[in-house]
Design a protein around this nucleic acid. Structure first.
Lengths: 201, 201
DNA sequence: CGTCTATTTGAATGTACTCAAAAGCGGTGG
DNA sequence: CCACCGCTTTTGAGTACATTCAAATAGACG
């Protein structure tokens, strides 16, 4: 089916009638990005919210010293972007970049208002999606604040094995709040520990 | 006026008719907490959202090692609590504690639904409030990720001088993601730097 | 195949933490 | 009103976790 990943995403939170699905489907556009291309940039108002159909992307922040900090990672099925900017239609602080050839389903802010007005079920869906994003973000921050680098990576790789496979360690390191070199060392320690455990058993 | 801090808070985002204000005012309850008393605890569903009328409070997280991490601080005029828990009516991860004798205006989740249904302007208000909370939280996390301890405190004390005055350094240190001892050293360094600058001028 | 980027590894460094002790401050009761 | 108690803040010494820099290796892409 066309846009089946979008339907699947909706169905995680709500159920739709055929008409509702047709409506949503008609208001969605498809966008294709090359590796390294920006989906949006700092200072822009994020006019679209994006669902990844294929490929992967990262959302990141550049601080005053020019350092990049990854805020969010996404692969097929994940909604990505600067939520606060999109929701509030305010200037964003973040960049979103395709990490490989990436296909995206996009809904514009205007079309989303149309959806809200014609079918309240979508208001419910996006409210839930945003609430979940907020809660996940909070959860992640609490984890980062309270665990050391090794446990952060351990939990990440168990929670998101697909991300861990598909996305380069450089970006995962930044997402986890450590340098790329240090993640390399962390992984080495973990591997050695696992070998130890095998021998003991 | 009764509950004037609540009216002031509403008026930051929306304007209300007399009827709307009467309605809201009637659905608000007042709650008083002693120093050290918990407004809500981890594992509970946060049934109320709270606006501080007087006093102060902190929202914090206890990790698996028993360490506390302050997520939010509030004084008069601030809404506090575990937003994700209240919005989603799910089990919270956070504690909220009064830091001194504290008076709070509370709206229950049920009363909030009544408000939403009778006067859509409140739906707009709380959507904006939550969006702002999310955006602020994101902003703060990006700051914490990308600045060292000294700049974090410098920006905090400039942005929230009232918090800096009213709340103990122990909790501010935790909010800023550093130990209380280290914040003490940071402040000392800043004072010395300011003396230096005076001499040079 | 060659170039460019990502990853690994090691050494030196640094920022912030822990622990311990002293000093300061505020509240309470005798 | 003063003395004491408990909590917060300050200070110093030692330490640990993670960073930076540099160089070597591996891997991806045209």
């Amino acid at each position: 089916m066309e846009h089946d990943i979008l339907l699947a995403s909706f169905q995680k939170f709500v159920s739709l009638t055929d008409e509702e699905w047709q409506l949503a489907s008609s208001l969605v556009s498809e966008r294709t990005f090359k590796k390294g291309q920006f989906i949006n940039k700092e200072g822009e108002v994020n006019r679209f919210t994006h669902l990844i159909e294929s490929g992967s992307a990262r959302v990141f922040y550049i601080n005053s010293d020019g350092q990049e900090h990854v805020v969010q990672l996404g692969i097929r099925g994940w909604w990505i972007g600067d939520f606060p900017s999109f929701i509030n239609q305010t200037q964003g602080m973040l960049y979103t970049e395709a990490l490989e050839p990436t296909n995206i389903l996009a809904i514009s802010y205007e079309n989303l208002q149309v959806l809200y007005n014609k079918a309240p079920v979508f208001e419910r869906f996006f409210r839930l999606l945003i609430q979940k994003a907020y809660a996940s973000f909070q959860y992640r921050v609490l984890h980062n604040m309270s665990m050391d680098a090794e446990r952060r990576y351990e939990i990440f790789s168990e929670t998101y094995p697909l991300l861990d496979q598909q996305i380069s360690q450089k970006h995962i390191a930044s997402y986890l709040g450590m340098s790329a070199e240090f993640l390399s060392k962390v992984k080495k320690r973990l591997h050695e520990r696992r070998k130890e455990n095998k021998r003991i058993r």
